[in-house]
């Protein structure tokens, strides 16, 4: 029987109050549909073998070491990457293993098929959405892709009434958008019922 396996580029334990009040472990998936100019984790792209394959069970066994902290502090796992929403089945299986006591968070761009978001939405507690910019031209310029899927998925989340489970990151992207673009993004998101925002400036890294 073939196992569901995912490429994981890194696991960072004991993150404190990064995603809510709890102790969390970041699990970063390999693979992302976007090619952002200021990507923080470019090792999530390409096929450089800088990853290890895990089954949900292996990941559960490895992360369970911090279960006491997770349960005591309402913490758990934050799936990032890369794009975690490319591995909905893996995350669903992980939820079945860890049970309901762990918080599962996603750091996602939402630039994935709606079926993927539909599949993960019921099993995750929080979504941290890196929206880039709501303007399609700016988005394409910065990421290389259309944001059509992002908008579809935002509507999906809004229709499910899960806006309050989302923290939307609206970055100021040097050389790509401006303060007024960012304000425009925020207004569009507010119109959909999202009201938790994190506004910050992308740091330009030299790789």
């Amino acid at each position: 029987m073939e196992q569901q396996r995912a490429r994981i580029i890194g696991i960072a334990r004991h993150r404190l109050s990064t995603d809510g009040d709890g102790v969390t472990t970041l699990v970063a998936f390999h693979g992302c549909p976007l090619r952002c100019c200021y990507c923080l984790n470019p090792q999530s792209l390409g096929d450089g073998k800088r990853f290890r394959e895990y089954s949900p069970e292996e990941l559960y066994v490895e992360t369970r070491i911090d279960e006491l902290y997770f349960i005591a502090t309402n913490g758990g796992i934050t799936f990032g990457g890369g794009e975690p929403c490319m591995r909905p089945q893996f995350i669903r299986e992980f939820r079945e293993l860890c049970g309901t006591a762990w918080q599962l968070n996603l750091e996602t761009s939402l630039n994935v098929p709606m079926a993927n978001v539909k599949a993960v939405l019921p099993v995750v507690n929080t979504l941290i959405v890196d929206i880039k910019d709501m303007n399609p031209d700016i988005y394409r310029d910065y990421t290389g892709l259309s944001n059509g899927r992002v908008l579809d998925n935002l509507h999906l989340i809004a229709d499910a009434g899960r806006q309050s489970d989302c923290l939307i990151r609206i970055p100021l992207i040097p050389n790509y958008n401006t303060e007024s673009d960012r304000e425009a993004s925020r207004k569009k998101l507010e119109a959909l019922g999202f009201d938790r925002f994190d506004l910050f400036t992308y740091q330009i890294r030299k790789h």
Binding site: I9, G10, A12, R15, T18, L26, A28, L40, N41, Q43, S44, R50, F51, R52, G80, E107, D130, R169, P171, F200, T201, Y202, Q203
Partner: peptide, 11 residues
């Protein structure tokens, strides 16, 4: 602020 999103060191 400067972005403090997570950076994962390479494997």
């Amino acid at each position: 602020k400067i972005s403090d999103t997570e950076v994962v060191k390479e494997i």
